[in-house]
Design a protein around this nucleic acid. Structure first.
Lengths: 352, 352
DNA sequence: GTTAGCACTCAAAACTTTCGAGTGCTAATA
DNA sequence: TATTAGCACTCGAAAGTTTTGAGTGCTAAC
């Protein structure tokens, strides 16, 4: 009798064949089909026996008596971890398209999501880089009119945030200058985490009579960097989900589409993906493994990209469990490195 | 024989009854059902005769022999224009929810779209106000580091735009001050259209050696106000579409969802809605009437809201043709005035 | 002009049949 | 002992059939 973990060569071959066939057709695959498909010439009967074993071991499932077998989550997992050979696949034009739009971060990410969706036929999402442990680069406080000021906060990676601040009375020009100087001297180059209560108290003290304004500015900073609720997420191809009957018929398709519209659940996915540092940042969630229950009938593949300066974003692909893992992972890797390249260039700001 | 346009009182009553019943049930309605429903006590036979006439006149349709009748586009149109009595309906809590978020325009609009979607059970969209013939309120140019500057542009309605500008060499402090003064003095309070080539040339001339930076800033202004391609549109409840079988079964549901994701088509809708100035800004498109072919099986109701200062946005509700027009129009009006009120308050900036 | 009555239509729902891919088991074979 | 051929059996899906009932149009009576 075999170890749970030690499958015979032949069982592996058969399992792989089952999964690959199922990936293509989406239909349960039976013994007869396989008896031709595999290289080792075996009769359907023998294969039936092996399949029976594989089912006992939990790698495949019979949706109902006398149907073929389909891979279980466990089966997919084995496939992704061991059996898959990565496909060489071109995603060439992506870089060109993206470069055209590279001046506007959001445009570019939208475009990237779209390209990826078109290329894979799955639903895709990209989160804008998050200013996690990011640094402040520049703060500017300006008087707009007698009762309003605007705070401009530039962070590493040139992410700009604004905040309108209401004030009781107009601050004089020199006061403003002094405040700006104070803020910049104290805060510039600081990482977000480094701004603690002690520092804030000290700053307010130094601001003297204008401590309220300083407080407001710091609130603005805090708000600007607050992650979860204004995490920008761009999606594309949500309706691709409909292409896969096993999802469409389930009602789960609707829920997924909804998740794509509401984006809240996608944000959780991003958080999860960023948290779990996998090798080269690619993570595969199969079925129940996914952090978002809505997608328990799907597979989710995520990758993270980085802008240096600790800013990270996430790319995600959501599709049926029988998604083409090889293609997807290849595409993700390509996109990942494209983004890295573009941002690297951008950070070194050698435009034209 | 009757005029095409002059329907007898009784025919009108019957038509109205048919439509109202169909709005509720979504099923074709037959003569027998009506013979009880209407106040004028008529036998099903009589009603059958009248219905036959109404069908000849094009107001109702028989989906197939021996089914009941459903309203035609023409029938709906008559209903919306003449027959409908507006329902009194509460949308009370909307204001409160929105006020909480009023500090962030995008958050608020998102919230408004969501509330509307939940309230109506249709798909909704809101376009952020467009700075059509809007005015500049404040411009600030700041040096971020040796090779970069940031331009902050505040427009009427407190819409803030940013643009990073690369420069060859650092500008001195006084130079910056002078430039800012120049820009603000010249441009503040100006409407976008008023900034023409002559003005730009004059400005550049006055900037002397720094004309390039001024040019960049003006480009930034132009870009900031460029409409179409960064029209922000917030949507909610797209999946509500699935609640209506006549849309779900059609495949049109998928297309609509897609339109909601891509947003391009929604932008067209917004443009159209803004262009056609209807009385009090509410516009109803039934079936083929809609400017977006994707939605030819739906009805679309749009309203525009205004921030004073010529900034306008559009609210849209997309649902099945048998949508509850009264409720929808009432909700739209409420939201419209809420938005107007909030923005009015905001413009007069009397916070707390 | 209105209504009752009736024969007729037809989509949808329920039920039945057929089909075929798939299984498990057993006995024969290498 | 491992493999295979053969066969009876299962069961979902597809195709076909029947039933049901809401609806119609027409005609004749009120």
């Amino acid at each position: 009798m075999e170890q749970t973990h030690e499958l015979s060569e032949r069982k592996l071959t058969i399992l792989k064949a089952i999964i690959q066939n199922y990936l293509e057709t989406g239909e349960p695959v039976g013994s007869r089909t396989l008896s031709k498909y595999t290289d080792l010439n075996l009769s359907s009967a023998t294969i039936r026996n092996e399949m029976s074993d594989l089912e006992d071991l939990g790698y495949i499932i019979q949706p109902h008596t006398s149907a073929g077998r389909i891979p279980s989550d466990q089966g997919y997992r084995l496939y992704v971890d061991l059996l898959m050979e990565e496909k060489e696949q071109e995603l060439g034009e992506m870089r060109d398209v993206m470069l055209e739009k590279a001046d506007k971060l959001d445009k570019m990410l939208k475009q990237a999501a779209k390209t990826l969706a078109v290329n894979t036929n799955y639903a895709t999402m990209i989160s804008a880089p998050m200013n996690n442990r990011n640094t402040l680069k520049f703060i500017q406080l300006s008087q707009v009119d007698e009762s309003q000021m605007v705070a401009v906060i530039v962070m590493g990676g040139n992410v700009i945030k604004n905040k309108m601040i209401d004030v009781e009375e107009e601050l004089g020009n020199e006061t403003l200058l002094k405040l700006n100087l104070l803020l910049n001297n104290t805060l510039n180059g600081m990482s977000i985490e480094a701004i603690n209560l002690g520092l804030i108290a000290r700053l307010k003290e130094q601001a003297g009579i204008h401590s309220k304004v300083v407080g407001d500015v710091l609130d603005a900073v805090a708000e600007a960097i607050h992650i979860e609720d204004d995490m920008e997420i761009y999606t594309s191809g949500a309706t691709n989900i409909f292409k896969y009957p096993e999802l469409r018929d389930n009602q789960s398709a609707e829920e997924i589409i909804n998740a794509f519209e509401e984006k809240q659940q996608l944000a959780e996915l991003v958080t999860e993906a960023l948290a779990s540092e996998e090798h080269n940042g690619i993570q595969v969630y199969i079925g129940e493994e996914t952090p978002v229950k809505t997608m328990k009938d799907c597979s989710v593949v995520t990758a993270t990209y980085e802008l240096g300066e600790g800013m990270k974003g996430t790319i995600g692909i959501i599709g049926p469990k029988r998604m083409d893992y090889e293609h997807v992972m290849k595409s993700l890797k390509t996109l990942q490195s494209e983004l890295d390249a573009i941002f690297y260039k951008d950070n070194n700001r050698k435009r034209e």
